[in-house]
Amino acid sequence: MAAGLAEGADTSCPWGRVDWSAPWLAPWRAVGEPLAQQVQRGLPVSQALGGPHAAAAPVGFAPQAELPEGMAYEQFIFEARRVPTRDNLHDFFNGLVWRQFPQTKRRLNQLQAEAIARDGVGAVRGPLRDAITVFDENGAVLAAPPALWTALAARQWQRLFVELRPLWREARLVLFGHALLEKLASPRKSIVAHVYPAPAAMNSIADLDAWLAGDVQPAAWAAKPFAPLPVLGVPGWWPANEAPGFYDDAGVFRPPRAQALP
């Protein structure tokens, strides 16, 4: 279960709100916590992310001012291989995902850039760009027994989290979206991830990255093949979900949408 913030942490500072002992940050802590400490000491986020251990990332990190006026953010990254970065948690976590999931981030950026080159930048994104943006900002990957996936897809929350609770010991949920990671700096029950299914045999983040980058296919992703998951309902992720009635909150654990009549 999530531990408290470190003793003496400055919660008035956005970096001080990040609880690196939280279960959802377990895959990110070894890389992310030392970088966050550098930023807390005054180093710009772009410099911290682009430090000596960033060789695996297929991009560099630049101050936001390097983005030319009128140029699409995704297009600039694809062409310049540099990510415009502000000094905030949102962009810090984005850079952290680039470092941990370099192949997947590069694939998503490639598809965004190709869509921009083909269709231009309009007031409304097309289905593929919209889906990529949803996952890039708020996505997660879940490797789980089939019974859990069936319950999740059907939004059978009591079955998913109560009846099948022991099966969660066989599941692994890895957060991907940088906005999702940012939101969890101030955890609240209503935070929902857009979850994509992964095979069980993922032994490391590197394995997961290689698989996910190869699995992103435009036609399938344009249909948004994601399932909504209130992440603080995951067993072991939040002490409150041990309490009776936690999953009865229909404002968070919403029932399936009614099917339209033919």
Results as ranks from 00 to 15, higher is better:
R86I: 06
T85Y: 00
N138R: 10
P27W: 03
F93G: 15
R81E: 14
P102N: 00
V141H: 01
L142H: 06
A113G: 09
V31P: 01
A113N: 10
W98R: 08
A143H: 04
R118G: 11
H53G: 07
A26C: 00
A131L: 11
F93V: 09
Q103Y: 01
A115W: 03
G60P: 00
R118N: 09
A115L: 07
P23E: 03
G139P: 01
P127L: 01
P63W: 05
P84Q: 01
L49I: 10
A123F: 10
T104N: 02
E114T: 09
P102C: 01
A55P: 00
A36E: 15
A57N: 05
W98I: 11
L25P: 06
A131F: 09
Q103V: 01
N88I: 13
Q112C: 03
A72C: 10
G42H: 02
Q100H: 07
P146Y: 06
P127Q: 08
W149Q: 04
G51N: 13
M71T: 13
L43W: 02
T104L: 12
L108I: 14
A65H: 11
L67N: 13
A30L: 09
D136Q: 04
P84V: 02
A147C: 02
D136G: 14
E66A: 04
P68L: 04
P23A: 10
P84L: 00
T133A: 11
V39M: 06
A123M: 07
V45M: 02
R107I: 02
P52N: 13
F92A: 09
L25C: 07
L67D: 07
R125W: 06
T104Q: 06
A30V: 02
A36T: 10
P102D: 02
N88Y: 04
R129V: 04
Q112H: 12
D87C: 06
A62Y: 05
A36N: 14
E114L: 14
P23D: 08
V39P: 03
F92S: 03
A57F: 08
G42L: 07
P102Y: 00
E114P: 04
Q75C: 03
Q47F: 02
A56G: 14
V97R: 10
A144G: 03
P146G: 05
G122V: 10
P58G: 09
R129E: 10
F61K: 06
P23T: 12
G51M: 12
F61H: 10
F92V: 12
A36W: 13
F78K: 09
M71A: 14
Q38E: 15
Q75M: 14
E69Q: 13
Q112T: 00
V59C: 14
D136F: 11
V31D: 08
P44Y: 03
A36M: 15
A115R: 06
I132P: 04
V121S: 12
S46F: 06
P68M: 02
A26T: 08
P44S: 13
L67Q: 14
F92C: 07
L142Y: 07
L108C: 12
P27M: 00
V39D: 03
A30C: 07
P63H: 04
A48E: 05
R82M: 04
Y73A: 12
L128Q: 10
E74F: 12
K105A: 05
V134R: 11
